[in-house]
């Protein structure tokens, strides 16, 4: 009897000891900062000193009023462009690569590692590497282009407003394409081989196989890739920060919400003004947008998984 009573107590302590530290950690470093950003956004700030309560003014400013609103919407449109582009090249190409790897074409073992290798590199390394590659004078990229007779298309990729955002988007795709590839590959490998074999015996074409059998059956993998890409694209910061600077150089053509939030809240070399009110409002809006859209999208995608399976 006594032992029976002791066991749950011991277990309770055990469970508590396991749950409390991560819970405390999450509460201190995730929940608390989010809640405080919510509170900060409703105040006027003098540097880091809180002044009066201003209600929704900071939100209205960043969404509707000069000089904030045009920058917010420009940055948002760039995030959308980045998301759509990455959806096509990063996830799309990732799926194709996964399919090619799953077909076990010659050399697939090597390529499986090669495709995933950039993912394990730190963003700082990737950014510096590609900044050097794309350098207009010493860069490898332009040199290779010239070598192959494409000298007329060489250009300062990161210096032109027409090419800079695309250049860093492609670098991002290069860095991360291994991730959707791996997820899709795992999804494809989970499909029972007899289904694929049976369809081959029935004589379906490669395209039909991909479209009507494989694609629907990797729907859970697609959900993961789509939603994570969405969150990543709208919180994009490190790569543009390292490659084009806080201002979204040249003249704001690579400005995204992450950069705009950072320079508004913390200031930069050329403005020094820290504005926590508008910065927090931007952060809260970004958080709400990402949270709401990704929640609804996840629900939809999950429903799609069920319909398709």
């Amino acid at each position: 009897m006594a032992a029976d009573l002791e066991w749950p107590t011991g277990r309770k302590i055990w469970v508590t000891a396991l749950i409390v530290p991560p819970l405390a950690f999450m509460a201190t470093f995730v929940v608390l900062p989010i809640l405080s950003a919510f509170v900060y956004a409703f105040y006027e700030w003098q540097g880091l000193k809180r002044e009066g309560f201003v209600g929704l003014k900071n939100f209205a400013d960043v969404l509707l009023h000069e000089p904030w609103a045009p920058v917010t919407w420009r940055a948002f449109s760039h995030n959308v462009m980045v998301f759509v582009t990455l959806m096509i090249i990063q996830n799309g190409f990732g799926f194709l690569l996964a399919y090619a790897l799953a077909r076990q074409l010659p050399g697939y073992r090597f390529h499986r590692v090669a495709v995933f290798l950039p993912v394990i590199l730190s963003t700082v390394i990737v950014a510096l590497l590609w900044k050097q590659f794309l350098h207009p004078v010493f860069g490898l990229f332009n040199k290779v282009l010239s070598q192959f007779g494409f000298g007329m298309v060489t250009t300062p990729w990161l210096g032109l407003s027409e090419t800079a955002l695309w250049a860093i988007t492609l670098v991002n795709a290069w860095h991360w394409v291994g991730f959707p590839t791996l997820v899709f590959l795992a999804g494809i490998q989970r499909i029972p081989p007899d289904i694929i074999e049976a369809s081959r015996i029935d004589g379906v074409s490669e395209w039909q196989l991909v479209r009507t059998i494989i694609w629907p059956l990797v729907a859970p993998s697609a959900t993961v890739c789509f939603v994570l890409l969405f969150i990543g694209a709208f919180n994009w910061f490190e790569l543009p920060y390292l490659m084009v600077g806080l201002e979204g150089s040249p003249y704001g053509s690579t400005d995204v919400l992450g950069l705009y939030f950072y320079r508004t809240a913390f200031g930069n070399q050329s403005s020094g003004n820290q504005d926590f009110g508008h910065g927090s409002a931007l952060a809260v809006l970004m958080f709400l947008f990402v949270a709401v859209v990704s929640t609804f999208w996840t629900i939809r995608l999950r429903r799609r998984e069920i319909e398709l399976s």
Binding site: S270, S271, G272
Partner: peptide, 23 residues
């Protein structure tokens, strides 16, 4: 003009960058 946003520096920097790019 570095006391308020958009600071004169930020405006001049992006303005001249754009101008020198011929835009």
């Amino acid at each position: 003009f570095r006391y308020q946003e958009p600071s004169g520096s930020v405006l001049l920097q992006s303005g001249v960058q754009k101008m020198l790019a011929g835009k």
